[in-house]
Every structure is written in structure tokens, then in C-alpha cells.
Design a protein around this nucleic acid. Structure first.
Lengths: 192, 192
DNA sequence: TTGCTTACTTACTGATAAGTAAGTATATTT
DNA sequence: AAATATACTTACTTATCAGTAAGTAAGCAA
């Protein structure tokens, strides 16, 4: 029985990410995945040795997707507002996908309990995001398109924190709050 | 063997809250509590019928503590900056207490899996916070002490989200980022 | 056609989870 | 002094978890 196996790994990875961002690392089990995919638990162990490995693969896929955004918007021709929007779209796609929260928001509560390799990966991913976003913010400010006070990295931290926390709060109070928050983040940065 | 029992309930409640904000709802067990307190699991069941009940009690204690802040700062004599600082201090005490994240941040990932009673409680708590903070922000703006654009409630959502997300991001990137974020929140609101 | 690899399943283990029923020691009430 | 309430413990159950060892069917490679 091959054929269906061609993309079982991808399906596990995708569903695992959905579950991670939907229920949290410790609230989903291998059975959630296997039953949904019509395979057995052992099939997951075949593709990912343990839950840690699955988590690591999920983190790495998120890094890959972010790298693609960096690449696509890396061109100096791309307007800083489009760069910002590409970043905001990550969060918007999360909330539109069954009220998911972002990877960092989901893993923050578990951060002190996950393996060292996952912590290091997550940390370097965070720094990559802050560097890229901080760079885009600084670029926008230099061009007179963004307005903000203080260090660009600190501003990037604030924007990331606001969006991550916004997804979470909106899970409790409703989507509307998140969309208003996004508009406010944009309005606050708007130089005119 | 009474005597030590006088405050076992309080100790369970307190430790449960620490664990909830430290490891997340699904990552801590009754054994974590019982072993730390030198009692048996059944003792926890005696004080709190199930984990849901413990969670509900933790949420209610957080509401009680917030109500005390409202009461203490309810006086019109209290400066709006002191009101804001009282709110910020909640988050600062969390990060200083073993890098804890806030109640909403911790429960956001589990929100879709907890009981209806806990969801309702958490939701009304969120609205209470937003109403109070939104009121304080509006008051400050009217007095010319705060400066911000847009609806006070939306601004309150943004401030809450920023602080909640900030605690989580700082767990990964370090405390310094959180303190700089707090200063930025204050600077952004400062009318002068 | 034999052997190897891929992609699983079957059947199991050991650990740990929440939860419960029944018993017990102490303190309080009557 | 007897009854009752409080605050547990002991001993257990049931469920579920991640993980593993061994087997298997299909495809490919020599």
C-alpha cells in the first residue's frame, strides 16, 4: 500500500501545525493526527521519531515560509507598506484559519518544557523576524513613510507582541478586536 | 493531622496559578502540586473536585485581585499615570516571578478546549479589563495627559495584547525586550 | 528472482493522567 | 462522652499518552 504514502509526511506536518496553533503542544496527541488522516499512530513515529522531532519540523517549516517572505519582499523596489502588509498577512491568515494563534504564542507557555534544540531554533527564528521587521521599519522611517520613536528593533518587538497577543485576546473577545488592532498598528506607524 | 490543612487550599490555588502561568494548563499535573506541597493527589480533589474547578478558582482569584486594583485606583484623585502603572505592574510582577506569562496568554492556546463556564468567566474578565483600561485611557486623554488616536477600547485592546505578547516574546528573547516594550507603551501614550 | 527500501500495520509496553471510594485521625459541636 | 465535620491518606480504577518491536505488502534495483 504505497501511493497514499507519498504525502503522508506532509499531511502529518500540516495537521500537526494546525493542532499546535489550535490547541497547543500538550493538548494534541498522535491519535488526533492519526485518526484524522486514517493512519495508525506508528505511522507518525515512522515519519517523525518523536513529538520533539515533529515540533522541530513544524518550527523549521515556519522558518522556511518566513524566509520566502524575506526573499519576495527583499527587493528594494518593494514598498515598505507592502512589506509590513506581508507580515500582517501571516497573522491574518492564522485568525482566519479556525482562530489559530501564532507559533510563538502557542509555544510561549510550553517554552520552558520543550527540548533545547527546539528552544534554540525558536530563539533564532525570533531574532530573524525581529531583524527583518526592524530593518523594514527603519527603512520606512528613513524614507519618511513610517513614523515612530525609539529603536527599530524595540519597535519590531512591540509590533510582534501586539499581533501575537492580539490573536490570543481575539480568541476570547472576538475577531473584530483583532482587525481593529491591526488597523491601529498601521495607523500608528503612518507618517501622514 | 489538621493544622497544616488550614491553608492547604490556598497553597494549592497559589501553586496551581504559578504552574498555569509557568507551564500551561495541559503541562502541569496534580502530582506537580501534591508532591511540591507534600500531600497526596486526593487532597487536591478534596479541595477542588476536578481540574476544571481548580482552573475556575484560579480565574476567579485573578478577577478578585483585579477588582481590588479597580477599587484602589477608582478614586478620581488617582492620577491616570498611576492607574496605568498599576496595570503594568501586574505584567511586571509576572515576568519577575520566574518568567511567568499572563493568565490570558497562558489560557489562549487552551481556550477552545476548556469548559464553557471557564470560557464565560474568562470572557467577562477580559471585558472588565478592557472597560476599565479603556476608561482610564479616555480619562487621561480628556485631561490632556494621554495622547492616542482612535477608540479608547481599541487602544485598550492594543495595550493588553502588547503586554501579553511581550511577556511571551520575552520568554524567548529575554527580559530586556519586555522592559523596553513597557517603556515604549508609556512613551507612545505620553501627551508631552 | 532475490534482496533491499519504503511505508506502513498490528500488537504491545510502561508511564502517567485525572478521578474515586473508603477509611482515618483530629478538631469541633452538642 | 458521643456525634459530626474537616482534612486528609490509602488504594484503586480507567483512560490515554508516547513510544517500540516485529511483521507485511508493494515497488524498485541488481
Amino acid at each position: 500500500m504505497v501511493g497514499k504514502s507519498l504525502n503522508t509526511r506532509q499531511k502529518i506536518l500540516h495537521l500537526g501545525e494546525q493542532l499546535l496553533k489550535g490547541k497547543g503542544l500538550n493538548a494534541f496527541s498522535y491519535s488526533d493526527i492519526s485518526s484524522a488522516l486514517g493512519v495508525k499512530n506508528a505511522a507518525i513515529h515512522y515519519h517523525f521519531h518523536g513529538k520533539q522531532d515533529l515540533l522541530l519540523a513544524i518550527i523549521e517549516e515556519n522558518i522556511t515560509r518566513f524566509d520566502e517572505i524575506i526573499k519576495k519582499t527583499g527587493d528594494k523596489q518593494v514598498d515598505v507598506w507592502d512589506k509590513l502588509q506581508a507580515f500582517l498577512d501571516i497573522y491574518i491568515s492564522n485568525i482566519e484559519n479556525n482562530h489559530q494563534i501564532c507559533l510563538f504564542g502557542s509555544l510561549a507557555s510550553d517554552f520552558l518544557t520543550i527540548g533545547a534544540a527546539e528552544q534554540v531554533n525558536l530563539k533564532s527564528f525570533a531574532e530573524k523576524i525581529l531583524e527583518w521587521l526592524g530593518g523594514a521599519l527603519a527603512e520606512g522611517k528613513a524614507l519618511g513613510k513610517f513614523k515612530f520613536e525609539g529603536d527599530p528593533r524595540t519597535r519590531a518587538v512591540t509590533v510582534c507582541a501586539t499581533l501575537a497577543g492580539g490573536l490570543q485576546l481575539a480568541r476570547i473577545t472576538g475577531k473584530q478586536d483583532f482587525y481593529e488592532l491591526v488597523e491601529q498598528v498601521k495607523a500608528d506607524l503612518n507618517a501622514k
